[in-house]
């Protein structure tokens, strides 16, 4: 198995198809990164919100006592 391009420049330009190929890969890997990170951030925000809510409930209960 050997590298199919003679230089880095040839690898980037890919015989005139570089723009199409690289744009596709950047798009796909960008979306895959988004699909990995967005649920983690959403979970973090949910738990944070839940904690605030619970603290508010506790404060309100303490005030009533």
């Amino acid at each position: 198995m050997k590298f199919q391009f003679e230089s880095l420049d040839a690898f980037i330009t890919m015989g005139g198809h570089g723009a199409n190929v690289w744009a596709s890969y950047i798009l796909v890997y960008g979306i895959l990164i988004y699909l990995t990170i967005s649920p983690l951030l959403a979970k973090k925000a949910l738990l944070k919100q839940q904690k605030k809510l619970l603290q508010l409930q506790k404060k309100s209960q303490d005030a009533n006592l």
């Binding site: 050997k2 199919q4 391009f5 890919m14 015989g15 198809h17 190929v21 596709s24 890969y25 796909v28």
Partner: peptide, 25 residues
């Protein structure tokens, strides 16, 4: 897979290097 498909898989005789989009498509 991406490094293999982009740099090490041989070029297609008809579609040339544009076929490398196949590896994600």
């Amino acid at each position: 897979g991406a490094v293999w498909g982009l740099g090490f898989a041989p070029m297609d005789a008809k579609q040339k290097d544009s076929y490398r989009i196949l590896y994600i498509h």
